[in-house]
């Protein structure tokens, strides 16, 4: 199975195997990884599964859709490599993906 590494704001790393087709948000929630809240449950209707995608993986992750871009634009901690992890779907091409969490979700 493809692997994802989540790095908490304090530097703690979590490496998990995530089935292709599942979202990166789901992987964090299923494995109780702290730092991703996912209040809306994956509807792209909040911004509490916000992550920074490692530069090396940005292109493979694609670009945010219109709704995602709106939600991200309201997150005070957003940066150019910000994504909502519910909108990144795991695939073999993303094996080794690294994402970092912001200081807090809101």
């Amino acid at each position: 199975m493809p692997q994802v590494t989540y790095i908490e704001h304090d530097g703690t790393e979590h490496r998990i195997a995530l089935e292709a087709g599942k979202s990166v948000m789901q992987g964090a929630v299923d494995n109780a990884i702290p730092g991703i809240d996912a209040d809306c449950g994956g509807e792209c209707a909040c911004a509490t599964c916000h992550v920074y995608v490692d530069e090396a993986w940005l292109a493979q992750c694609g670009t945010p859709g219109e709704q995602e871009a709106s939600m991200l634009s309201f997150a005070a901690t957003a940066a150019p490599n910000s994504r909502l992890s519910c909108q990144i779907t795991m695939s073999p091409a993303l094996d080794g993906l690294i994402v970092r969490m912001p200081e807090a979700q809101h």
Partner: peptide
Amino acid sequence: ARPRGHLSFGFGIHRCVGNR
């Protein structure tokens, strides 16, 4: 287990600014 899955703050572009 997932207490924040509620509607009280709304969702989408108008989701409450002051939730946290």
